[in-house]
């Protein structure tokens, strides 16, 4: 076992991990942050997306020790401490951007990464950016709509779901 230290959602954390411990396992089992979901475990579904040093990564395809010293942001750090949803989360609720909710943590974290780089993405840019996030419920329309709304754009022009 090796000691690992990183910052998660602004708080310094430490833990004991094996070389083979995945970042997703450390977050979920080491820190109890089970909002980060593991869907496919083959780096395809994107439910496990978190931010490491400001960029989106698939936490099931990164070792915990690779995140030594890094700033990690997970879905648990997105809402305000009193539970008030952030703009993206609220838009997902307002526009019915989720059904079962399993993919939602990854969708929200990917959307946050997109909007940081591209504050007013087009519908096509959103769909392209979400290539690595799979949703088996919504058909994506309302997710795309929610992200457009979160970026302050008029979504009435988007086709109804």
């Amino acid at each position: 076992m090796t000691k690992v230290a990183m910052t998660v959602n602004g708080k310094p954390v430490t833990g004991e991990v094996e070389g083979r411990t995945l970042l997703s396992s450390f977050l979920r089992e080491g820190l109890g942050l089970t909002g980060t979901h593991v869907g496919c475990d083959t780096s395809q579904c994107g439910a496990c997306v978190v931010h490491v040093d400001g960029v989106a990564v698939k936490s099931c395809t990164m070792l915990a020790l690779e995140a030594e010293g890094a700033e990690v942001a997970t879905i648990e750090g997105q809402a305000a401490p009193d539970g008030t949803l952030n703009t993206i989360q609220q838009a997902f609720q307002d526009h019915h951007g989720l059904q079962c909710g399993f993919c939602t943590p990854g969708m929200v974290m990917s959307a946050a990464a997109l909007l940081k780089d591209n504050p007013k993405p087009t519908e096509a840019e959103i769909r392209h950016y979400l290539e690595g996030n799979l949703c088996r419920c919504t058909g994506y329309h309302n997710i795309v709509k929610a992200i457009m709304a979160a970026s302050g754009q008029d979504v009435s022009v988007l086709a109804a779901e």
Partner: peptide
């Protein structure tokens, strides 16, 4: 290549 999260790693 891949998707955005893959390209970041």
């Amino acid at each position: 290549i891949g998707d955005p999260a893959v390209r970041n790693r």
